[in-house]
Amino acid sequence: MSLVERQDMMNEDSVVWTGGMGTASDYLALLKPRVMSLVIFTAFVGLMLAPGTLHPVLAGVAILCIAVGAGASGALNMWYDADIDEVMSRTKKRPIPAGKVTREEAFTFGMTLSIGSVLLLGLMVNWFAGAFLAFTIFFYVVIYTMWLKRSTPQNIVIGGAAGAFPPMVGWASVTGSVSLESFILFLIIFMWTPPHFWALALFKSSDYRAAGVPMLPVVAGETNTRHQILLYSVFLAPIGVAPYFLGFASPVYGVASALLGLAFVALAVDVWRKREGDVARTATVRLFKFSIFYLFMLFALLLGESLVAGVLA
């Protein structure tokens, strides 16, 4: 709807405009600050683990650009998904469905920040990282939000790549390239995303059903979703230990990540076994919460080891 269509003619001289209601904090909410915090953290770990050095100011610029790029993707996601967000209880208080920000405003805001963050990263850090950030934004907005999300139950499997790119962009900010190590960081988040989101989808499936989003529990059923969660968890556990086997993490990380992986699989088995009633819901919520802790711990351990190695060197 254009601005002109939104105007209600009061009289021939004055016009009331329904836009322009958003405060600075509404625009901040468009950036999905909670998702952004995870992106900042994982990108920072990628940047710290990368071989070579980057001036602290430029490292700060890189993290800022990656964070703003991620936030811009969030704003563009809210622009496109405003109709779905209005229906789901988890999202109906977002700025667009709440009537604080119009879709046009969110689009303009998202595009401005997208272009700005990519140019800034390219000009100030390096163009490979800038191009990688542009690709990440494109992947999240066009491939995931506009194409996959509404068309396939495998939406978050492929779309999860967008959330897994930030540590690679952080790494690329230092080295100007990608490597097997940064790809492993990507793979950990990539394999983690499906069990994490499907656990959420299991206890929020009515929301997704109402919105017509083909999440796996809605399309393939809850039993199938439980099989898939278990399958991905079994694949995830060894990938979580891979940094140790590839030699860029210590035995301490190796043991800790193995134990965390085992706990993840155990909780996935629990979700697989308990399929009815409150016990099933409790098991699902427990897996969802543990999945966040799991990812945080893996990256925190890698970061901690890199900081300790930096002090000892």
């Binding site: 105007q7 009061m10 001289d13 004055s14 016009v15 009331v16 405009w17 322009g20 209601m21 958003g22 405060t23 600075a24 904090s25 509404d26 625009y27």
Partner: peptide, 22 residues
């Protein structure tokens, strides 16, 4: 002053918040 788009008090307040942030 009566002509064109007239902002409500709430819109003026929001605009100020945005202007400060910008």
């Amino acid at each position: 002053e009566e002509k064109g788009i007239k902002l409500t008090d709430e819109q003026l307040k929001s605009r100020r918040s945005r202007s400060v942030a910008i």
